[in-house]
C-alpha cells in the first residue's frame, strides 16, 4: 500500500462519518460529495469497503429507503457509537493537523 493510501485510510473514515453526520446519505451521493470537497483522487469505488467496515463496527447503520427520485436506496446514518467515533476523530485530527503543518512547512520544504 502506498503512503498516500495508508494516510488516507483513517482520514477517509473520519470524512465519511462527518458527511453522514451532516445528512443521511447513500453511496453514490457520498462519493460525489467527497469529490466535490476536493478528494478527487479517491477512487469512487473505494468508499464501499469502508462503508461495510463502518457498519461492521456499528458506527453507521444502513437502511433501504425510497428516495425522492424514486428508486430504493440504502441510506446511512450514524449510530451513537458513530457519533462518539466522529468526536474522537475530530479531536485527534485537530491535535495532529497544525503540528504537522508547522513541521512540514518549516522542515520539509527546504
Amino acid at each position: 500500500m502506498s503512503l498516500r493510501s495508508q494516510l488516507l485510510k483513517g482520514i477517509l473514515e473520519g470524512c465519511i462519518l462527518s458527511i453522514i453526520y451532516q445528512q443521511p446519505t447513500y453511496g453514490y451521493e457520498l462519493s460525489m460529495k467527497l469529490q466535490k470537497f476536493g478528494l478527487s483522487d479517491v477512487s469512487e469505488g473505494s468508499i464501499y469497503p469502508i462503508l461495510l467496515r463502518l457498519q461492521k463496527e456499528k458506527l453507521i447503520h444502513g437502511e433501504m429507503k425510497k428516495s425522492e427520485a424514486g428508486p430504493k436506496r440504502k441510506y446511512y446514518q450514524l449510530t451513537d457509537e458513530g457519533h462518539e467515533a466522529l468526536a474522537d476523530f475530530i479531536y485527534h485530527w485537530d491535535s495532529i493537523k497544525e503540528p504537522v503543518d508547522r513541521i512540514i512547512t518549516r522542515e520539509g520544504r527546504k
Binding site: Y26, G27, Y28, S31, E44, G45, Y48, L51, L52, Q55, G62, M64, P71, R73, K74
Partner: peptide, 15 residues
C-alpha cells in the same frame, strides 16, 4: 450484506 452492497455497486454504475 452481500446483496445490499451488490445493489449499491449496481446503482453506482448506473448513475
Amino acid at each position: 450484506y452481500t446483496e445490499e452492497v451488490l445493489l449499491e455497486l449496481l446503482e453506482h454504475i448506473i448513475q
